[in-house]
Design a protein around this nucleic acid. Sequence first.
DNA 1: TAGATTGTTAATCGATTAACAATC
DNA 2: TAGATTGTTAATCGATTAACAATC
Lengths: 207, 207
Amino acid sequence: MKNISHKVVERSFIYIRALTNISRQNKDVISSAELAGVTGLSDNTVRKDISHFRAVGKPGVGYEVSKLRNVLEDNVLHREVINVVLVGVGNLGQAILKYPGFSRERLNVIAGFDTDRSKCDRKINDVMIYPFSDFSEKMKTLSADIAVMAVPAISAQEVADRMVASGFKALVNFSAKALEVPERVFVKNIDLTIEFLSLYANARGIK
Amino acid sequence: MKNISHKVVERSFIYIRALTNISRQNKDVISSAELAGVTGLSDNTVRKDISHFRAVGKPGVGYEVSKLRNVLEDNVLHREVINVVLVGVGNLGQAILKYPGFSRERLNVIAGFDTDRSKCDRKINDVMIYPFSDFSEKMKTLSADIAVMAVPAISAQEVADRMVASGFKALVNFSAKALEVPERVFVKNIDLTIEFLSLYANARGIK
DNA sequence: TAGATTGTTAATCGATTAACAATC
DNA sequence: TAGATTGTTAATCGATTAACAATC
């Protein structure tokens, strides 16, 4: 279980989801080529990725669906419930609170925070929203794994600092700000504007 | 302007945005090291990226901010207005319709579509929502560059097929489905669940 | 057994980092 | 001029693809 790259981990979750669908169709065995087909990857990549974990396939036959899923889930911790807190309950924040995909995969939003008091002290989609000024205090009683920032770029660094101070090691940053955090903290930047612009540029053929 | 990778294009937009901020501070010249600082990249990467375009820096001095921005904008087509259509006006779709970052960067949502008729024939954030059954017909009169899919995985392939049939070459796919499209069509997959799960796995130390 | 498919090693490809001569 | 910084080439690193012996 050494030196598994972020890309392999990411694809492992894609395999897990595909295998879940496949087992619903009462299919017990799948080849790397078939799994590649449904995930849009190559059979080489599938076999290579799986080989990072415990060998579980049968040459000439393929992979037992449930066994492969178990091995992958064990290795990427898919069995655990992941608690998420959200800072910034604007349009994007509320969409995240209501995102139907999360609960299916054990992602559990346990609290929201906002500086706008009119949004606070009520529930959205069963999730309580608190004033951001209470963040550090609240986090003493809540146990969370990931913090999501759906805040404007201007306040992003300040929010990140508070999260780091509260001990978060994993931040999702939807703002346009490049966050400065200690090396031990993992930041996933999701910048919709950049994604859209670069997709367009690529499709228009900058190459 | 040959063989510019997607990553270089993406970072070019990040540089453009940083340079816009910097020029507001009445700073005329910037070094690769300074630009690296504000974008969270390395000075080597900054210089290497810029070198893909027309040389514009002065050894010993740095880059003229406005000139560098112009060169980058020209090369990644940042001057153009990009028209976007949205299919799926659920929570995530509505957040996209209202996303404040888009208009600042010339991303212009021109229409929304949904199968739920109760969402149709009205405006959300000034954008008209139409029944998805009218998609192909409507697209004959609208001119759009990017199509965004914020629909459930189950209907994603069908929606993508309609978009391809209407001539779209660039799709943003927020669903969990791996889309099958012709090679000429560019797909950007943004799967929030996978992003969150893999961030957590990485932070927990799968390595 | 013959055919199919794994697990793994080697080859390729691409991206990042290092280094430094050129030059402002 | 001396110091600073570019543009570019070379070195390194990592990820993907190809290929095939092992084996079910």
